Amino acid sequence: MLQNESYTPEEISKLLKVSKLTVYDLIKKGELQAYRVGRQMRVDQEELENYKSRGKETRLAAPAKESQQSSSSIVISGQDSSLDILGKKMEAQSSKYRPLRSYAGSLDNLIAMYQGRADIISTHLFDGDTNEYNIPYIRKFLVSHSFIVVQFVKRRAGLYTAKGNPHKLSSWEDLKSNKIRMINREKGAGARVLLDEQLRIHNISKDELKGYNNEETSHLAVASAVANGKADVGVGIEQIAKITAIDFIPMIDESYDLVMLKSGKNQSLISDVLEVLNNADFKEELQSLGYDCHGIGQIIWEQ
Results as ranks from 00 to 15, higher is better:
Leu2Tyr: 13
Glu5His: 12
Thr8Gly: 14
Glu10Asn: 14
Glu11Ala: 15
Ser19Cys: 08
Thr22Val: 14
Thr22Asn: 01
Val23Tyr: 01
Leu26Glu: 10
Leu26Tyr: 06
Ile27Val: 13
Ala34Leu: 09
Arg36Trp: 11
Arg39Ser: 15
Met41Gln: 12
Glu47Arg: 08
Glu47Leu: 10
Asn50Pro: 02
Asn50Cys: 09
Arg54Gln: 12
Gly55Cys: 11
Arg59Met: 10
Pro63Trp: 05
Ala64Gln: 10
Gln68Asn: 10
Gln68Ala: 13
Gln69Glu: 06
Ser73Ala: 12
Val75His: 05
Ser77Asp: 04
Ser82Arg: 14
Leu83Cys: 08
Ile85Gly: 09
Ile85Val: 14
Leu86Ala: 01
Gly87Asp: 01
Gly87Leu: 01
Gly87Glu: 00
Glu91Val: 09
Ala92Gln: 15
Ser94Thr: 08
Lys96Tyr: 07
Ser102Thr: 02
Ser106Thr: 01
Asn109Ser: 04
Ile111Ser: 04
Met113Leu: 13
Met113Lys: 12
Gly116Asp: 05
Arg117Ala: 08
Arg117Thr: 11
Asp119Gly: 06
Asp119Asn: 12
His124Ile: 06
Leu125Phe: 05
Leu125His: 03
Asp127Gln: 12
Gly128Asp: 03
Thr130Arg: 09
Glu132Leu: 15
Glu132Val: 04
Tyr133Met: 06
Pro136Ala: 14
Lys140Thr: 14
Leu142Ile: 08
Leu142Asn: 13
Ser144Tyr: 11
Ile148Pro: 06
Val149Glu: 08
Phe152Leu: 00
Arg155Gly: 07
Gly158Gln: 04
Ala162Trp: 07
Ala162Ile: 05
Leu169His: 04
Ser170Cys: 07
Ser171Thr: 11
Leu175Ala: 02
Ser177Val: 05
Ser177Cys: 12
Ser177Glu: 00
Lys179Val: 07
Arg181Tyr: 11
Lys187Met: 14
Gln198Met: 15
Gln198Val: 05
Arg200Trp: 09
Ile201Ser: 08
Asn203Met: 10
Lys206Pro: 00
Lys206Trp: 06
Leu209Glu: 01
Lys210Cys: 02
Asn213Tyr: 12
Asn213Glu: 06
Glu216Met: 14
Ser218Gly: 02
Leu220Asp: 04
Ala221Gly: 05
Val222Phe: 03
Ser224Gln: 13
Ser224Phe: 06
Ser224Trp: 10
Ser224His: 13
Ala225Glu: 02
Ala231Phe: 03
Asp232Val: 03
Val233His: 00
Val233Phe: 09
Glu238Leu: 14
Gln239Met: 11
Ala241Thr: 07
Thr244Ala: 09
Ile246Asp: 00
Met251Cys: 04
Ile252Leu: 04
Asp253Ile: 15
Ser255Glu: 13
Tyr256Asp: 07
Tyr256Pro: 00
Met260Ile: 02
Met260Gly: 02
Met260Asn: 02
Leu261Gln: 06
Leu261Thr: 05
Lys262Asn: 14
Gly264Pro: 08
Ser271Tyr: 13
Val273Met: 15
Asp281Cys: 10
Leu286Glu: 00
Gln287Glu: 15
Gly290Pro: 02
Gly290Gln: 03
Asp292Gln: 08
Asp292Gly: 07
Cys293Arg: 07
Gly295Lys: 08
Ile296Glu: 00
Gly297Met: 07
Gln298Ile: 01
Glu302Lys: 14
